[in-house]
Write a protein that binds this DNA or RNA. Structure first.
Lengths: 228, 228
DNA sequence: CGTAAAATTTAACTGCTGTTAAATCAAAGT
DNA sequence: ACTTTGATTTAACAGCAGTTAAATTTTACG
């Protein structure tokens, strides 16, 4: 009996396509269609270029496109996107754990490699890492069927002052921010106490092993914790 | 002082170009120009396609093209090719030593990745592997200046019957052959005794730890040894 | 409600890497 | 030296992913 991949039927999908699907997946997590300009911005192309490409992706039944309204992934498009996301996050973990890259460095490397590796490479990383469920930033790694583990992460900013918990995810790919937050001890696994959230968009004060940290809202809203 | 790469000026060279330069490098190792049809065959494209591409590479001063005669690399082309070869062979070593892939599997993975990694990744592998000088098949890994280590490898078939030595290189990327030769204990590092070379293209008989092995000329000529 | 601004699409074109088919060149044999 | 064969190049074109500029649609505001 031949070994069958969940993604056996996903051949003939090239780099550019994979990056589009990846971006659309992330932009549609909230359930709303992704608009052309957003997609174009994330990919670093012009809106007109993205518009043309989206039409082609729609022709290939990878996205469901409503002109002037935006794009959603079809179930096929979603499966492919989830494969890329799985590979990206496994790569990030591999780059961090096995190769010793810092958590603010792994995204760029992973992005360059995610469309070049094959299933054997993906599986080998998964084994070496003992089937991890999160990337170094705490994002969940879907399994080969595209299913995510169930977790108890909540946005830090939804919590009341005085809440204790453990950082589970820092939701950004901005290397500078990651570097800074890492230096403050704010990485997945860190125990935190939410001291205060100043009103009117004011700073958020936390306490970690390293001591007190004060963050602007833009950084604080990236942090997800599991309350104690 | 900014860290300067030997290859800083090699930007803007894409995948297809790198693969052409790589192939031309290998075909011109004997000093002779590589002909269009050969190049096309190695790359899996038509000779006309290769011809067009070669002209473009010549326009970019990466190859020195004599129409109807063949292609040589310019010194710039050679530098770029050597960078790719270094990355390919470091990747092969990494895939074998760190990730546990078999020596007949590493070439394909390395080929897929060699144009996607950057200098930091290259350097990290080099460190992790403690600056290896050979890939798993025994090919030499050029340093960042494109210089190869000096070694004493000689083709097995240039040696007289009775010669003892150590296998240093198996010069093929054919996975099936590598798998077979590996099963016979014929990998770099293996001690061998050349028993006999039958005349008129007959079989070559060797002795290894595993016992006696008889090889056809096509396989035997791939093997390079360092005489004891 | 109508119009200005913003978002989106379409049109025409570019660059890259390939294709097939036809033309051309080179090498070798008689 | 001529001719045949094989290698190589050229011509015309295709597919993909992008561009700029113009046209169009949507949205939002007064």
């Amino acid at each position: 009996m031949a070994k069958t991949s969940t993604f056996t039927d996903l051949v003939g999908v090239n780099d550019a396509t994979l990056h589009y699907l990846d971006v659309i997946y992330r932009l549609t997590l909230d359930g709303n269609a992704a608009n052309t300009t957003e997609i174009a911005a994330k990919l670093g192309v012009t809106p007109s270029g993205a518009s043309v490409m989206l039409k082609r992706l729609a022709d290939r039944k990878l996205v469901q496109l409503t002109p002037y309204k935006g794009a959603l992934l079809t179930s096929l498009g979603k499966r492919i996107a989830l494969r890329t996301i799985r590979r990206h996050r496994l790569l990030e973990m591999f780059l961090g754990q096995v190769m010793g890259f810092a958590w603010h460095e792994v995204d760029l490397h992973a992005h360059a490699l995610e469309t070049s590796i094959n299933e054997a490479f993906e599986d080998r990383m998964d084994e070496m890492l003992d089937h991890p469920t999160r990337c170094p930033h705490g994002h969940l790694i879907p399994n080969k069927n595209g299913e995510f583990p169930v977790v108890n992460d909540v946005p830090l900013l939804t919590q009341a002052a005085g809440t204790r918990g453990t950082v589970r995810c820092v939701d950004t790919d901005n290397g500078d921010w990651l570097k800074y937050l890492g230096e403050q001890g704010l990485m997945p696994g860190a125990a935190v106490l939410l001291r205060s959230i100043a009103p009117y968009g004011g700073p958020v004060t936390l306490e970690t092993k390293h001591g007190a940290v004060s963050l602007g809202r833009n950084l604080a809203e990236l942090i997800y914790i599991e309350p104690a």
